[in-house]
Structure formats: C-alpha cells, structure tokens
Design a protein around this nucleic acid. Sequence first.
DNA 1: TATTGTTATACTCTATAACTATA
DNA 2: TATAGTTATAGAGTATAACAATA
Lengths: 163, 163
Amino acid sequence: MDLEARAHAEHPEALRLWLRLLTCTQLIERQLRAALREHFDTTLPRFDLMAQLERVPEGLRMSELSRRLMVTGGNVTGLTDQLVAEGLVERIGVEGDRRVWRVRLTEAGQRAFADMAHAHEQWVVQALEALTPREVDTLHRLLGKVKTHVQTLQGVATPEDIA
Amino acid sequence: MDLEARAHAEHPEALRLWLRLLTCTQLIERQLRAALREHFDTTLPRFDLMAQLERVPEGLRMSELSRRLMVTGGNVTGLTDQLVAEGLVERIGVEGDRRVWRVRLTEAGQRAFADMAHAHEQWVVQALEALTPREVDTLHRLLGKVKTHVQTLQGVATPEDIA
DNA sequence: TATTGTTATACTCTATAACTATA
DNA sequence: TATAGTTATAGAGTATAACAATA
C-alpha cells in the first residue's frame, strides 16, 4: 500500500502531492465502488449518471450526459440502456428534432437514487471525518485552483461548470 | 465536465470536497495516461510497477509488488510478463525457496524508466503549477490526514508506508 | 453534408478462484 | 497443510470507428 513511490527528482514536493492525491482518491473510490455494489448492486458510473439526472428533472440529452460524465457517447448509450431496462430512467423523444432524446429519472429512479445518495453521502462523510470544517474548506479551495488550472491546460473551457 | 454534481443533502461540504478531489484526480490521471501512451507506449500500472522497482535495485518479490501496487497477484504476473517480454524487467530465482522470484529492472529498464520518470514529473509539475509551495505543503499535509484515517477505517495498517 | 445517437469491437485494468510447485 | 506464484476467466470501464436516421 504505498503507491507513493514514484517520488524522486527535481520537484519532489509536486510529485509527492500528486501521488498522495492519487492514493487518497483510489482508497475512497475503491470503498465507494465496493459499497455501491454490495448495498445497491450498482456501479459508480451508473450512480453518477443518475446523479446528473437528479439535478435536472426535465432530463438531459445523451450528448449532454456524455459531456458531463466525461465519457464517450457509446458508453452513455450502454449505461442508459441498463438503467432503462431496470426502470430507473426513461428516454423521451424531443419534438422538433427526432434524433434527440431527453433522458430522465423515473419515479422509481428518483426513489432509488435518494436511497443511494443518502448512503453514499454517509460513506464520504466518514472517509473525510478526520478533517475539521475549516480544513475541508481549505482543501476544497486549493483543489479548486488545481482544477481550474488543469482544465485550462486541457482546453476544457466550461464556464457553466458548477461547484 | 462537471462530475461535481452529486452534491446535496446534510453534509454538502464533505460531498463537494470528495467530488472535487475525484475530478482533479481524474483530470490529471487521464492526461498522464494519454501522455504515457503517446510518448512511451506504456500504461500507468506498468509505470507504477517500474517505479516500485526503481527504488529497490535488488528487486521485489511478486507478493510485495502486489501489496505495494494494491492489486491482486494475478495482475502482477500479467504486468511482469509484459515487461519481461520487452526486456525492461527480469525475474531472478531466490535461493533457499524455489517458489519465490525477485523481480528487478534490467539496465534497459533503468534507462527507460529514467526517461519516463523525468517526463512524468514535468507533466505533474505543470498540472500543479497553480499552487504556491506553501499551498502544495498544506495540501500534502491535509491529504495525509485523510489517507491515514481512511487506511485505518479499511484496516490497512501499513506502518512501513513511506511519504 | 453535418449532427445525434447507436452498434460493434477491442483493450486495459481489476478481481476471483482453481491450479502447480514448492515448503 | 500452507504458501508463492500462475492460469483462466469474467466483468467493469473506456475508447475508436463505422453506421443509421434525421437535420
């Protein structure tokens, strides 16, 4: 358990920070995946897709889901197909452009998501409970700088990006 | 590009922090994967395996690599096989126990890793260049608290964990 | 012609479990 | 019997590219 081994060289502080960032994220993500699997028989990408829909009751088109989840269109089709088969989301035609779908949570999907989101939140809170509220704030702010910079580097340009 | 959508509920600060942590890590990791692929035709797990070996010239046994990389044994066998086929690492028998191997970098592997590590470091430095040295320090320290706590929760208990 | 979404396919990464060979 | 490592297999998760329908 020490992924933090890639350190060496001229900027050891930056490298060490990156490796610690990666380790923390992996530890928490692994736990969340396992817990979602165990308690709700679902996966993180499916949870994320539902989380996007939960914020937009009227639904999102496939291309918008693809952009927000940062995955290609084919994957969104696959995830959506699964969730439709389970009755958690539905595709609704958009009048005026018959190529486009709005995807939205069904009522069952809303109920299921509420349960999952509640448990998910508790797992996250537990993982981060070593930090004081002030430290949570500081971390959030500093990571915000990193996020903005990296997005600029990668030319993502998402003014409508929230949080 | 806004994975940071799962927020809501009773502890929105913790959730927001987790989602930002995840977004930052994914953005950087994606870029590193793409760059390793493009410039060195390799992958992050292979790079990580070589990074572990670079610190231990005499080599590590398969089980130790498995522990350090946080993946199961079968995966280490597969990664090692690939790297052996390319002449970057070698398996050496251990006298006294014929079940055990020491895996270590070959000379070619050392040279290849030095190149990759140098480029890798520059990519990381660039991703984190929005932070002052002091902020890098703060982030590293706060994430250290998270890491320790999560490892305790998961019962990992790794006193020999470095960094 | 361009765009939206789907299909087909393949590759990386990972886990589990059965297996071989030593101890 | 227990341990070190391997093999076999399966399933996420993701990407690319060709495709159909519609604009």
